[in-house]
Simulated scan of single mutants.
Amino acid sequence: MQISSTDRAILATVQENSRISNRELAARVGLAESTTHERVRRLVEAGVISRFTADIDPAALGRPMQALIAVQLRPQSAEVVTKFLDAVVDDPCVLDATVLSGETDVLIRVAVASSEALRTFAWQKITSVPSVRSIQTHIVYEHRRGSTVTTADPSD
Rank of each mutant, 00 (worst) to 15 (best):
M1I: 15
M1A: 15
S4V: 03
S5F: 02
T6N: 12
D7K: 05
I10H: 04
L11K: 00
A12N: 06
T13M: 08
Q15G: 08
E16D: 05
N17H: 12
N17C: 10
R19N: 15
I20Y: 04
S21A: 05
R23G: 10
E24G: 01
A26V: 06
A26H: 05
R28I: 06
G30D: 01
A32W: 00
A32F: 01
E33D: 07
E33G: 03
S34C: 07
S34A: 11
H37D: 02
H37F: 06
H37I: 05
V40H: 07
V44I: 15
E45C: 08
A46D: 14
A46F: 08
G47Y: 09
G47D: 11
V48K: 06
I49Y: 09
A54N: 13
I56K: 13
P58I: 02
P58H: 05
A59Y: 11
R63S: 09
P64D: 00
A67G: 07
A67H: 04
L68W: 10
I69H: 05
Q72G: 06
L73K: 04
R74H: 11
P75S: 06
Q76V: 12
Q76D: 15
S77Y: 05
A78F: 13
F84E: 06
L85F: 07
L85G: 07
D86T: 14
V88Q: 00
V94H: 03
L95V: 14
T98H: 15
T98R: 13
S101V: 14
G102E: 10
E103V: 14
T104W: 00
T104G: 00
T104S: 08
D105Q: 03
D105P: 08
D105H: 12
D105S: 04
V106E: 00
L107C: 13
I108S: 03
R109D: 10
R109W: 00
R109V: 08
V112A: 05
V112P: 00
A113M: 04
S115I: 07
A117D: 12
F121D: 02
F121P: 00
A122Y: 02
Q124E: 14
Q124A: 12
I126Q: 03
T127K: 15
V129A: 07
S131L: 01
S131G: 06
V132P: 11
V132D: 12
V132I: 10
V132R: 09
S134A: 15
I135D: 03
H138I: 14
I139H: 08
I139W: 10
V140D: 09
Y141N: 12
Y141W: 15
R145P: 05
T148H: 08
T150L: 02
T151M: 03
A152Q: 05
A152C: 01
